[in-house]
C-alpha cells in the first residue's frame, strides 16, 4: 500500500484547504476535489483492514518460508529462510508490518524461483502452496471496486 495512506491523507488535507479559496477556477476545483474524494474512499476501505491483512499474510509467508527452509538446496538461502520463518510481528504499526512483509516477500520470490527450477515432487508441492498463497494474498487485498 504505497504511497503510505497517512502521507496521502496529509497531502489531501492541504489540497482540500487550497480548493476552498474562492479564486480557484471551478473546473480545477471540481477535478481536484473529485479525485481527492475518490482517494479518500479508497483510503477508508484500505485503512480498516490493512493491519489484519498484513498480519495474516506475514503468518502465511513465514509458514511457507519454514517449509522452504527444509527443502532449499542453497545453504545460505536455507539459513536466511530459517531466520525469517522464526520471526514474528511484535509491533502492529502499519509501517512495521509493511517492513516485515517486504522482507518476507523478497525471500518468497527467491524461494519461488528455486522451486520452479526443480522437478522433484516435494518442490512442486511447495510451489503449488506458494501459488496458493499468492492467490489468497491477492484476494485479501482486493478492493471492492476492482476492475477484475
Amino acid at each position: 500500500m504505497k504511497p503510505d495512506v497517512s502521507q496521502v491523507l496529509a497531502d489531501l488535507a492541504g489540497r482540500v484547504a487550497r480548493n476552498a479559496a474562492p479564486q480557484i477556477p471551478a473546473a480545477q476545483r471540481a477535478g481536484e476535489l473529485g479525485l481527492s474524494a475518490m482517494l479518500l474512499g479508497l483510503a477508508a476501505e484500505m485503512w480498516d483492514g490493512a493491519a489484519e491483512i498484513l498480519v495474516q499474510e506475514n503468518v502465511a509467508l513465514r509458514t511457507l518460508l519454514g517449509s522452504g527452509a527444509r527443502l532449499s538446496q542453497d545453504n545460505a538461502r536455507r539459513r536466511w529462510l530459517v531466520e525469517l520463518a522464526g520471526g514474528r510481528d511484535t509491533s502492529l504499526r502499519l509501517s512495521a508490518l509493511q517492513s516485515a512483509n517486504a522482507e518476507l516477500r523478497v525471500a518468497l520470490i527467491a524461494l519461488h524461483a528455486e522451486l520452479e527450477r526443480r522437478d522433484d515432487a516435494e518442490a512442486k508441492a511447495l510451489e503449488a502452496e506458494v501459488w496458493g498463497e499468492l492467490v489468497a494474498g491477492a484476494e485479501r487485498r482486493r478492493l471492492s471496486g476492482s476492475p477484475i
Binding site: M1, K2, P3, V8, D11, L12, R15, E32, L35, S36, M38, L39, L42, A43, M46, A138, R141, R142, L143, G145, S146, P147, I148
Partner: peptide
C-alpha cells in the same frame, strides 16, 4: 498530483 496515487492504490492489486 493525486492522479499519481490513484493507479498505485487502485490498480496494483488489480
Amino acid at each position: 498530483d493525486p492522479i499519481l496515487v490513484y493507479p498505485a492504490w487502485a490498480l496494483i492489486n488489480a
